[in-house]
Amino acid sequence: MEITDSPRAMEARKQDVLARLEREIDIWVATSDAEGVPCLVPLWFVRYGEDLWLSTRPGNPTGRNMREGAKVRLAFGDTRDVVLIDGDVETFTARDVPEAAAEAFLGKTGWDPRTSRAPYDFYRVRPRMVQAWCEARELPGRYLMRDGVWAV
């Protein structure tokens, strides 16, 4: 297979990432525990402000890992249109989550974890690093954000 398309400009990649964050409902969530045991699951999410909000049970491995490790890597599933986001995590119970963030989550997903019989926590992810590329031709310039600051 020969790839002849020119790489997208960094600004175009950023706009594609932001559009995908609005369009997609699921995102892959990668965490690890204190021993380094990895965990990878898809979760619903919403972008609210500059942060991404997830919700899961506090007692499952992903919930524990995000709460205890306070780090996460997020990714979309398409291997030919890669978006990777590394972020810092802050945990909120269903009682202390900011109402506007919970309402944004409900508006996008149609589900309100605050009303579930089982306990669910919310996790605010502050992006620290964003990479995006399509195929090898876009590997140069793939870092759109570093240390929480957009490059473009």
Rank of each mutant, 00 (worst) to 15 (best):
L84T: 10
E90I: 12
D112Y: 04
P119V: 03
G77R: 14
R142P: 01
P113Y: 06
A75E: 14
N65R: 04
D112K: 06
T79H: 07
G141I: 08
L84S: 09
S116P: 05
R124M: 02
D86F: 06
L74F: 13
R95Q: 14
G110F: 08
R137P: 05
R73L: 12
T31V: 05
K71V: 09
P61K: 02
R126K: 15
V97L: 05
P113F: 06
M145D: 06
G36Y: 00
R137W: 09
A136S: 11
W53P: 08
E99S: 15
G49P: 07
L106Y: 13
F122R: 04
L144Q: 07
R117F: 06
M66W: 07
R67M: 08
R142N: 08
L84E: 12
E50W: 01
Y48R: 04
T31L: 06
E35W: 12
M66L: 15
N60I: 14
S116Q: 09
R142Q: 12
A75F: 11
D112N: 12
E68H: 14
D112C: 03
D86Q: 11
A136M: 11
Y143K: 14
W111G: 02
R146M: 10
G107E: 15
T93P: 05
L139M: 14
C39S: 15
W53V: 15
D26E: 09
G107W: 13
D78P: 04
W28P: 00
A101F: 09
D147K: 12
I85W: 08
G69R: 02
W53S: 08
D88F: 02
L139A: 01
Y120C: 00
E50N: 11
V149H: 14
P140T: 00
R95G: 08
F122I: 02
V89A: 02
